[in-house]
């Protein structure tokens, strides 16, 4: 049997491919790489592009990867694919949005309150009213 290498292609949400292959080709950050069994350990970033898996029966499967990481061990290749195209400024914008959400939630105390919170306040107010009533009855007698 020809030498094979185990290939796993996974993204955070699901497993995309897992199986044996004769070789793997990917577009790494520094250029196209072809990986055959007993490759030296390597860790690299992937550029948007194709990952081709040449299976030992000669068939070829192609996957599109927007970005991610490629790990090579002598007998295992792992492609950690990102689910979406990641760029520094997109990440930055997302972080900013999450921050603003928090600020908005903290400052927004008057107009649009969510239902759950209103409900909680109602329960609190009712408990207070009951306590006042009880205190008043206690005094009356």
């Amino acid at each position: 049997m020809a030498m094979t290498i185990h290939v796993d292609i996974v993204s955070a949400e699901q497993e995309i491919f897992s199986g044996l292959a004769a070789a793997v080709f990917a577009s790494a950050a520094e250029g196209e790489v072809g990986i055959y069994p007993r490759h030296t350990p390597m860790l690299t970033k992937l550029k948007p592009g194709e990952v081709r898996v040449l299976k030992d029966n000669g068939e070829e499967e192609q996957f599109y990867v927007s970005s991610g990481m490629l790990e090579v061990q002598p007998h295992v290749v792992t492609v950690l694919a990102d689910t979406a195209l990641r760029a520094a400024d997109v990440d930055e914008a997302a972080a900013l949005q999450a921050k603003q959400e928090a600020e908005r939630a903290l400052s927004d105390k008057t107009d649009k309150r969510d239902f759950a919170e209103a409900q909680r306040e109602l329960v609190e107010a009712m408990a207070q009213l009951r306590a006042i009533e009880r205190a008043r009855k206690g005094k009356g007698r």
Binding site: D91, A95, A98
Partner: peptide, 29 residues
Amino acid sequence: KRLPVNLVSQTAQLGDAPRAHDLVGTVKV
């Protein structure tokens, strides 16, 4: 929100099937 802790970021309404990149912002903060 109503506790005296420093709330720096928040995300909500991700739904039943959240996507991994919905969380990027929160984690990045």
